[in-house]
């Protein structure tokens, strides 16, 4: 059932990828937990997300994978009754430390959501939004950055003549790539993707997956997906979460061919989840 795709063939072929411990871990969890009130959604998870690689987080729904992802850029801050335990480190700093600047954190860690959520503004203004927040209105460079971001998200050719159109007039797949461009425009180092293709059709999904392959090596990408084939296709490393616990973590090729844990194998072969 596991297709040998470009991504995992490459992952297997490149020794540097497998030897992820040797590189500086940009994002790392150290016995990290997240609680919704009394309910512990993420339990003592310890793992490193290596730089410039694609890490997939998989697991059945409700296993805490989205919660873990959203903890990285503190999008869970708004949840009433939410609190954390352990440490979550980005660039050597505790993300939940007292003096951490959330604005800078989120700027350096971009995010793409489940459903494409462009603002009801023009395409240009969508991409420019984040830049304007940080730089103020600097029209000349903005133009360049918007173009570069759209190029990088593979959307430029489709929208270059209609940058002033409402973003909501794009198709779902285009909207999602626009959201990726919007995230890239603020020049992040890490890109969090929360099931970015779950609302898209197969063709649009394929484009996003290709895009992820292109972005690999420039950005540290962490992607949550419930689609195991997708994880196999796009990721270098895979983490399997089950009921908040990290069950297994390792190179994708190895996880999908020779899982070390019984539960990983059960999940991958469809016994549950």
């Amino acid at each position: 059932m596991i297709q040998p795709t470009l991504a995992n063939i490459r992952a297997a072929a490149e020794p540097a990828t497998a030897d992820y411990g040797g590189r500086q871990a940009h994002v790392a969890c150290d016995r990290f937990s997240f609680f919704y009130g009394d309910n512990q959604a993420v339990r003592n998870v310890t793992l490193d997300f290596p730089s410039f690689q694609v890490t997939a987080i998989i697991g059945p729904s409700g296993c805490g994978k989205s919660t873990l992802l959203r903890s990285i850029n503190r999008m869970n801050d708004l949840i009433p009754g939410g609190r954390t335990g352990g440490r979550l480190v980005f660039d050597g700093q505790d993300v939940y430390g007292p003096r951490l600047d959330v604005v800078t954190l989120r700027r350096r860690i971009g995010m793409v959501f489940q459903k494409p959520n462009p603002f009801p503004k023009s395409i240009f203004n969508n991409v420019a939004y984040g830049r304007r927040l940080h730089d103020g209105p600097d029209k000349g460079r903005l133009q360049e950055i918007v173009e570069a971001s759209l190029q990088r998200a593979g959307l430029w050719d489709e929208v270059k003549d209609r940058l002033d159109d409402n973003a909501l007039s794009l198709s779902g797949g285009q909207q999602q790539r626009l959201c990726i461009a919007r995230a890239l425009a603020v020049d992040p180092e890490v890109l969090l993707m929360d099931e970015p293709t779950s609302a898209l059709d197969p063709r649009a999904t394929a484009r996003i997956e290709d895009l992820i392959a292109e972005l690999r090596g420039r950005y540290t990408i962490i992607i949550v997906t419930h689609n195991m084939q997708q994880a196999a296709r796009v990721s270098d490393l895979t983490a399997f979460l089950y009921e908040g616990d990290l069950i297994e973590y390792g190179a994708t090729a190895q996880m999908f061919t020779q899982p070390r844990q019984k539960r990983t194998e059960d999940y991958m072969t469809g016994r549950f989840g």
Partner: peptide, 12 residues
């Protein structure tokens, strides 16, 4: 310095 994650005491 724009990418400093930790703010100074004063800024915080």
């Amino acid at each position: 310095n724009e990418r400093n994650l930790v703010m100074s005491d004063a800024a915080s």
